[in-house]
Design a protein around this nucleic acid. Structure first.
Length: 574
DNA sequence: GCCGTTTTCGGCCCGACTGTTTTCAGTCG
């Protein structure tokens, strides 16, 4: 029995190995496409095979169906095993070095016997690459730099690592007189949970001047590329920034092109081709004639599509609905009326109850649901029953100070190993709401973990589930869990699922939100703030909600204070 | 390896920059 994640990993690895082998590149791409298709299907491979759903899945022909079948029945794919054994494992790691693709890696392996990043580093330091055609002094230097980069940064960055720098660059570029139009593009504009680099698109009649300013920006540690329409710099925190310039007339096409995603663009160009046109970053063309568009909306329209917001351009379901309808408005930061899930000095927060409340008010929110850790979370200063009661008294006192703002009594209760909550029922009843979260005992089977969380969801005291998969971006994978079953249980029990907005988590994953939405489930966009500054993380959660296609109606903390007060009461008694 | 009311074979998205060439392959997005 092999799960979806395993199948995806194996298919992607087969694609890479096929490329390394020099196989037909379209064959390799077919495996990548199949892996994407797997990701987007709810359920597990064994179920799809049993139900015959596999036959309907895009990109699964005879051969790939057989391979998936083999994987489910035997736990492996023989062709995958053969491919793996024909190359040393280290080559896969070498392929993650920027500038090295399958062709070059293969040459290095065959000519110099390079099998690992360490081999390669040594070879570059001793000028061994100079003996091979197509490699020179500069290649060696670039490779050494690339090795440092992957060692330090794994090649991807969390939003909080990229966004502040992007905003600084954006405002600096904005001030340049030659910059006529400017936007963030790429995965940052799409609010992907981690990004590889920062992309900018600029409309200008003087690209040289803009490029000159850009590559000499004080944040640039070194210049990776400096051309007349495309340049790249590396920031001192290891993030690459790409800037593309076009003429004002080309701008909407370029913005669309550099917003991506790659898969979305591929589909767009295919649609253009179907209609006898050609789409690239410079325009949409019928023969040699430009089809004039003033905005991205116009371009979509020419391809018989309604406008697709950047966050949704991932080639998932957007082409299906955009043919028929415009997407309902996505939730915005300004829709958010209040905050749940914040810690105070009672447990592991940096600010007092009062400081957190005042900071929340100052941001324009009208309520704060405070949730310190529960007693089992001793490492985080979890609250004893006495401390809970003391905190409730303090909250009652503080609430007398405001008539336009309210502190709600909450707790982030650990979900214990057996799925129970962390206080006796008579204590749990005294909270206005309870967030149930897993903080320990991650090493369970998927069935056990799923059952554990569902048990917590079924507890009448539970209002929300906190960071449902436990992942830490770029650091720790989600614990094994059937997230669809968890969502089903939450929907059935009127439990709200948290979008944990902390940029290290962004959990629940946006990919599940469309499913959750269609189940009628509410989410709450929660900062999990451990300081007053942490409250601002809500912006990242809003990005995730948008990416998941949610509007304000799907977000619990987009409700105003009075409604939330009422809702919490009914949720508690249901 | 997939896919098809233009197709069951011959397509499969498009362009910039680099480094090494002396006209281009490889890589990237």
């Amino acid at each position: 029995m092999s799960d979806k994640q395993t199948a995806m990993r194996i298919f992607k690895e087969m694609a890479t190995l096929l490329e390394l082998q020099g196989a037909n590149p379209f064959k390799s791409k077919a495996y990548v496409k199949a892996a994407r298709e797997l990701q987007q299907h709810e359920g597990q491979p064994a179920e799809w095979i049993a139900s015959g759903a596999i036959k309907e899945m895009r990109g699964f022909g005879k051969s790939l169906q057989e391979k998936l079948n083999e994987l489910v029945e035997t736990g492996k794919i023989s062709e995958h095993e053969e491919l793996r054994s024909s190359f040393p494992e280290g080559l896969l790691k070498i392929l993650t070095i920027p500038g090295l693709g399958s062709k070059k890696v293969r040459v290095l392996y065959e000519e110099l016997g390079i099998e690992s990043v360490e081999d390669l580093e040594e070879a570059c330091q001793t000028d061994k690459l100079l003996s091979i055609d197509g490699f020179g002094k500069k290649s060696q230097e670039k490779i050494l730099q690339g090795i440092q980069q992957i060692r330090r940064y794994q090649g991807r960055h969390r939003l909080n690592q990229a966004l502040p720098f992007a905003q600084r660059l954006l405002s600096d570029l904005q001030e340049q007189p030659d910059v006529q139009q400017l936007d963030l593009g790429g995965s940052l504009r799409r609010w992907k949970e981690t990004v590889k680099d920062i992309d900018f698109v600029v409309a200008t009649d003087n690209p040289e001047a803009v490029m000159e300013f850009f590559v000499n920006h004080p944040l640039a540690e070194h210049i990776i590329a400096h051309g007349s329409t495309k340049s790249s710099i590396m920031l001192n925190n290891g993030i690459n920034v790409d800037l593309r310039t076009v003429t004002p007339k080309q701008y909407p096409y370029a913005l669309m092109h550099f917003t991506g995603s790659k898969e979305h663009n591929t589909e767009m160009r295919r649609r253009a081709k179907d209609r006898g046109m050609k789409l690239n970053e410079y325009g949409l063309f019928k023969g040699d004639d430009l089809v004039e568009c003033e905005s991205e909306s116009d371009i979509f329209q020419e391809l018989d599509l309604n406008y697709i917001p950047p966050e949704l351009r991932e080639d998932r379901t957007e082409f299906e609905w955009a043919v028929e309808a415009t997407h309902p408005p996505l939730v915005e930061l300004s829709d958010i009326k209040g905050v749940f899930h914040a810690h105070s000095t009672y447990s592991d927060g940096a600010a007092s109850l009062k400081e957190m409340a005042e900071a929340t008010r100052a941001l324009g929110y009208s309520y704060l649901g405070i949730t310190d850790h529960s007693r089992t979370a001793y490492y985080a200063g979890g609250l004893s029953i006495e401390e809970v009661l003391k905190q409730h008294k303090e909250i009652d006192e503080l609430n007398k100070e405001w008539d336009d703002f309210q502190l709600f009594k909450g707790i982030e209760s650990d979900i214990l190993g057996d799925g129970s909550l962390d206080y006796p029922d008579e204590i749990l009843e005294q909270f206005d709401f309870v967030i149930a979260s897993v903080h320990s005992q991650f090493k369970m089977s998927q069935d056990e973990m799923t059952a554990r969380i569902i048990k917590a969801i079924e507890h009448p005291a539970t209002t929300m589930v906190g960071h449902p998969t436990g992942r830490l971006l770029l650091n720790r994978d989600a614990y094994p869990i059937d997230i669809y079953k968890v969502v089903d249980a939450a929907a059935a029990n009127n439990v709200i699922i948290e979008i944990n907005a902390n940029p290290y988590r962004l959990d629940i994953d946006w990919r599940i939100l469309e499913y959750a939405r269609d189940k009628g489930m509410l989410v709450s966009i929660n900062p999990d703030a451990h300081s007053t500054k942490g409250l601002e993380d809500i912006q990242y959660g809003v990005g995730v909600a948008r990416k998941g296609g949610l509007g304000p109606d799907h977000v619990f903390n987009a409700l105003d204070l009075d409604t939330v007060r009422e809702k919490l009461k009914t949720l508690r008694s249901s």
